[in-house]
Write a protein that binds this DNA or RNA. Structure first.
Lengths: 342, 342
DNA sequence: CACACTATATGAACCGATTCACAACGGGAG
DNA sequence: CTCCCGTTGTGAATCGGTTCATATAGTGTG
């Protein structure tokens, strides 16, 4: 083995000693180079190089207070919806030379709390979070301690907290309205648990669409709860649907990943889409248009969502909190109408 | 506005004062509760609660040394391949109660360096990184300073550094061999720039397959460089291919995202797949099997990749560095053979 | 040549935790 | 009634930077 012994990291005083200057001067070279004469500056830089000195962020931060880093906690980094949001965040923050640390809570409140604490302890400027619970008191507490908090994909229930969200009631409504217009009278909703806000809101929207059409939501809509919001969850959900005594003619899925799983089962069972079963997804991910049956889906402005969230995070903390709501958009494709798009 | 004034964060001495004990005692309550009598412990906990005290991570770390956090830098968080790898990392690290901070370099060496430094300054236990450059001296330097470094998706060129990778030469070879077997004699390779190792290796493999078949790589293979490894890049690349004087009959894409874009163009142009143009992707992402023409793709053990990388990161730093190489696997579907799969 | 003033360098105090040698206390043994 | 020891609590030193009041050298002016 050729690994060098990992000796103690060089500190600023080591640098000062080898350069023959005081620690204050080294610090000045690092932070206000113009205050230092070129000759000493070079000497110090040489010493830094020689010792391969990397300043200790903890020490710096301890003294200086805060840093140009923000945290983001999403439900699942493997979900394209959230990664698109994360891209939006990164794109905005890097404009201000901020860095983002991304973490995924897996919808587990404990994990969320752990990351929240990790970020707070490390003194991030702010945290953007897709809450795993409906209760957000813990987030308000963080806010109260002086850390900027922006709710992602979730409108803030209180005025003191900034948030960026998409109108999920409208999204659920437009999807189901679309299916009703096509004549479906029994519609399954492959949904997540209702304590997740998005799920509850889309359900509300779905019921509203049915009611508006003069039908009884309890008769038309079948709530199928899936445990994981991905293709596996979608598979399980669709299998459950197909075993119902009175099989629905259409399925609305909580996201495109779940729809993907649902389509997989339908293909395996030889059920044609949309004639045997119409399918509508949510998120309009990249590949939705390219599936064997192009997927009708509710599109959300993901990149915008992240971008604006980062905007709010960077906003003057003294300014009023802001709640932004975007509107979703239905993208109709063959999985519901049976007509391929141009 | 109801925002509370963000007063200074409470410190351990504030807690000590309100609880009427010394700072040492508060610290003991936090870290060795058994050393403190129940009565005082309760008093301290009450004070902590009252002041909603959150220990300052920088201070703790400054004193204590290192923390249970690791960093991961990938090329693009929006790419399912990398997020699957990230999941593997998270799954392994959370077993040891470590937390992961994820960042994406966007293939930009400067951004990579920025995150590398950020992580190092914050004293992470180790960093897993998909290098944006072929040169890895800067990573060796980080290693030398005592931070564990594991190369992701890239075999280490030196024995002192751990790495986890997939054999990309083999991957390129099997993809092209497959196309040759099907009778294609002019094959486009929608590839990224060759200074990216994966791209170079797969190109090498592709040439080897051609040479092994007794043909001239320079005549059979057409190298088409795309700038971004996503659907947009794939679109641009396929448009370029279609304008060639002697249009290839098959296209091998650097990843499934690019293949997605390529398929999009082909559909728009009314070119049938695989008869007008066979397409092979790479990564075998979730949706590959569900595309309008199910995509032949080279599958990589993504989750394993991340999981093992995290394993190596957590390994005893004194133990020898380890290089792990996985083998890819060709998954044949209709986009190359024209025969739908079961 | 004295004086003011600038440019540069110094080093001690400080940020907020952890740690450890030491003090105080109380109970049991002799 | 001492002495010893274990339990509990104390507070100063420490980690590695930043900052700022202060010292010193050098420059130019009247």
């Amino acid at each position: 083995m050729t690994t060098t012994a990992p000796q103690r990291r060089a500190s600023i005083s080591d640098v000062a000693r080898t350069a023959g200057v005081s620690v204050g001067t080294v610090s000045n070279v690092l932070n206000r180079p113009d205050r230092v004469s070129p000759a000493t500056r070079d000497r110090v830089l040489a010493a830094i190089d020689k010792l391969s000195f990397v300043p200790n962020g903890s020490a710096r931060q301890l003294r200086a207070g805060t840093i140009t880093t923000a945290g983001a906690i999403v439900l699942d980094v493997a979900n394209p919806f959230f990664t698109d949001v994360a891209r939006g965040i990164e794109d905005r923050l890097s404009q201000d030379d901020f860095t983002v640390m991304l973490a995924s809570s897996d919808e587990d409140p404990d994990r969320e709390a752990r990351y929240l604490r990790l970020f707070e302890e490390h003194g991030v400027q702010g945290i953007m979070v897709v809450p795993a619970t409906s209760d957000i008191d813990h987030l308000l507490a963080v806010r109260r301690r002086g850390v900027a908090v922006v709710l992602l994909d979730r409108p803030s229930p209180v005025s003191g907290l900034s948030s960026v969200a998409v109108d999920d009631v409208a999204g659920g409504e437009m999807a189901v309205r679309h299916l009703l217009t096509l004549g479906h009278e029994r519609i399954a909703f492959l949904n997540g648990p209702h304590f997740i806000r998005q799920c509850a809101d889309r359900w509300t929207g779905a019921r509203r669409a049915v009611a508006d059409a003069g039908l009884d939501p309890d008769e038309v809509l079948v709530d199928v709860t899936i445990s994981s919001h991905n293709a596996d969850g979608g598979e399980a959900g669709m299998r459950e649907i197909l075993q119902m005594p009175d099989v629905p003619t259409a399925t609305f899925c909580i996201n495109d990943l779940a729809a993907l799983g649902a389509l997989r089962v339908l293909r395996r069972e030889g059920i044609s889409v949309p004639h045997g079963m119409a399918v509508v997804g949510y998120d309009d991910v990249d590949f939705a248009a390219e599936l064997s049956t192009p997927l009708t889906s509710v599109r959300q402005p993901t990149h915008q969502l992240g971008f604006r969230a980062a905007d709010l995070l960077l906003a003057d903390p003294a300014s009023a909190a802001e709640q932004i709501t975007f509107q979703p958009e239905l993208v109709v494709r063959a999985s519901s109408t049976g007509v391929a798009q141009a």
